[in-house]
């Protein structure tokens, strides 16, 4: 599956939800789509699933536009944070319906997940708790076996144990058959180690697209005496720095070995921190540019 996004723009009145975004996703990887509230993540996922049309620009799934295109849509399953299913439907009707729609739908897996999550097949969606409804979404998403599966904050109301079960099954499924999984969440610390590639959106623009492992290697946190760190970060791409009692910690794009040889304390930056700092910086830069 190949997803090509070119100058993709979605405008609501004066506001750009997405502003000329371009990138390509090609491999069946687990992608982390990250960003602050209002960054444009959900807008992008809705366009990929063919739910809404772009204002400008294009999105292609294997060369075809998703909107109103059954051929694309049966290969793309989007599970959102709520209201995925009609309230009047029974759980088993949801499963049956989706199994008709997605050609590779795995009944066996769906059944197993319903049991794992104690979902009664005869219960109506409207009687389910928030967590149960999320569990049903996860069940459909995983069992759909679509080559592109998108989870947009799929686990509102799910407790930690149930989320862990979800990660377990997701990794198992991914290992047994590689597919493109796009994952968007605010609980980054819980899932960041599962990402193979990370995309960060900020105010409708793509700030970063990088392999998670490269990101962890190229971005480091260095701590040392202030002068020492100041010297080290000269001519390097700085993400953020803070100072306390003559000691400075800087997040920077730099070579780990070089920093160790300079005698500084070197650590990796948790993905969650990195996302916050990168989007924070972006905001400041923009502010400076305006003023």
């Amino acid at each position: 599956m190949k997803i090509e996004v070119s100058q993709l723009t979605k405008q609501y009145k004066n506001k750009f939800a997405l502003n000329h975004v371009s990138f390509t996703l090609e491999e069946p990887k687990i992608y982390g789509l990250l960003g602050r509230n209002g960054a444009g993540k959900t807008t992008f996922m809705d366009m990929l699933a063919g739910n809404i049309l772009p204002t400008k620009g294009d999105i292609f799934v294997n060369g075809e536009k998703p909107f109103d295109n059954r051929h694309v849509q049966e290969n793309v399953c989007l599970i959102k944070e709520g209201n995925n299913f009609k309230k009047e439907w029974k759980v088993k009707e949801v499963i049956r319906l989706y199994s008709f729609f997605y050609p590779k739908f795995d009944q066996q897996l769906a059944k197993q997940l319903l049991e794992t999550y104690n979902l009664n097949p005869n219960a109506k969606v409207k009687t389910l708790s928030k967590g149960m409804e999320s569990a049903l979404g996860i069940t459909v998403g995983l069992a759909s076996k679509t080559p592109v599966t998108i989870f947009d904050e799929p686990y509102i109301g799910l407790d930690a144990a149930a989320r862990k079960q979800f990660y377990d099954v997701m990794l198992q499924e991914y290992e047994s058959e590689k597919r493109m999984i796009i994952f968007s969440t605010h609980l980054i610390d819980e899932v960041s180690l599962m990402f193979e590639e990370v995309l960060i959106l900020q105010q409708g623009e793509l700030v970063l697209q990088k392999s998670a492992e490269a990101l962890r290697q190229q971005t480091i946190s260095v701590t040392g005496r202030q002068e020492q760190v100041q010297q080290f970060i000269k001519n390097k791409q700085l993400i953020s720095k803070k100072e306390f009692m003559g000691t400075m910690t800087a997040y920077v794009f730099a070579d780990r070995q070089e920093a160790i040889e300079e005698g500084m304390e070197v650590e990796s930056i948790p993905t969650q921190d990195l996302m916050i700092q990168l989007t924070e910086k972006e905001r400041e830069d923009r502010h400076e540019a305006i003023s």
Partner: peptide, 17 residues
């Protein structure tokens, strides 16, 4: 690779590396 991936909840590609 897969055993590492599911034990630690990490991406299989990372374990493979």
């Amino acid at each position: 690779t897969n055993e590492f991936a599911s034990y630690y909840k990490i991406n299989p590609a990372t374990a493979a590396k």
